[in-house]
Design a protein around this nucleic acid. Sequence first.
DNA 1: CGGATAGTTGACTTGCGTCAATCCGCGTGG
DNA 2: CCACGCGGATTGACGCAAGTCAACTATCCG
Lengths: 202, 202
Amino acid sequence: MCSYKLLPGGTRQVVDVQIPGDFLGLRSVLFRTAGHNIEPISRVQASEVQVRDLLEAFQTAPRLAATLLWAASRDEAMVVEHLVGIGRRDAKQRMAHFLLELGARLKLVRLASNDGYNCQLTQYLLADALGLSAVHVNRVLRELREDGLVTFQQGKVTFGDFDGMVAFSEFDRQYLDHDGPLMTGPGGSPSAVQVLTAMTGP
Amino acid sequence: MCSYKLLPGGTRQVVDVQIPGDFLGLRSVLFRTAGHNIEPISRVQASEVQVRDLLEAFQTAPRLAATLLWAASRDEAMVVEHLVGIGRRDAKQRMAHFLLELGARLKLVRLASNDGYNCQLTQYLLADALGLSAVHVNRVLRELREDGLVTFQQGKVTFGDFDGMVAFSEFDRQYLDHDGPLMTGPGGSPSAVQVLTAMTGP
DNA sequence: CGGATAGTTGACTTGCGTCAATCCGCGTGG
DNA sequence: CCACGCGGATTGACGCAAGTCAACTATCCG
């Protein structure tokens, strides 16, 4: 799925993309932002979680709370990286970086390897995610293909030269691989439940 | 102050700007991102807070935890808005939106009114924040001045036509004014302390 | 078969970057 | 006191990356 914001004028900006296993809507629980929507891309299987139930779950499984907070934190780090990319990378590098990052995330849930992965994103959606026009997305993908770096056709992303991609896009191999440098403590104590309670009322 | 990321190649992207009263470094507590730095802009008065002390403070002042979490959430919302602006607004609108948003935040701590505010940001810094070149920042500021919308000279931002600015930049008056739609519950129960403990170890 | 939706490509336009020159205020040191 | 250097602001000329418009193809589906 993807979450995006619509602007008056009809354009939209995709903020981030959700993949299988992701927890959706963490951001909007605490701070509802206007004009923010989510949309399915491929067939989705999802479970709705009531805040109430989530709080209970935190009681019985304290580490869940910590994990979820960490996920929220990681999501924000990705938004920041996204921001940097749009602000300071050109279209080609931006695309390469995006495809690598998506691959890295899919790899964590065994839906990608260094060879490539399946990906149903349309070029229009890529355009809205990367702040480009659909036409230019197409051109950039062709260039990357001609350079032998990646191929993105028929719903498949195939890396031709993975290391070349990493080098070209200046991708930081670290930033999604680890489990969080501060997650190493003993942990296990309760829990985010009180915080959420304080925010939302019992 | 401002927090930014440096890219190989010498360019940088300013992610957000801190104003008096802001809590700094919430993001990096949980998830350290590479190449992320902060830098003072004007003379800064700051207190360093040890995570340890923060946790204790949460014990005695539970609402502090909730407030801080809300602040973190608001910061993320601003980053998202920033992302949208860079991705889908042209330079002029982006600048107008940025100046309004900064004004709205400063108003909350009584450092701005609808007339304007003091602002020591250089055009180079604006450029790095908005994903533009310094030269173009200058051009855009001149255009906005000639349109009678804002003047930004000698460290002073002066709104010539506040409503015009809001309309032109499609600024959402809501999104920083309220105290958070979900902050309305009774609240007051403890606290973020356990969460942070779980993340960092005791 | 027609009508969506997505991808592809070419021709043209434009917003913004780059380079370069100038100007201004300020501090520093001779 | 003036010369100098420096960081910031300003402006013009020029080039390029990316947007826009438009045509054409491919594929799927009713």
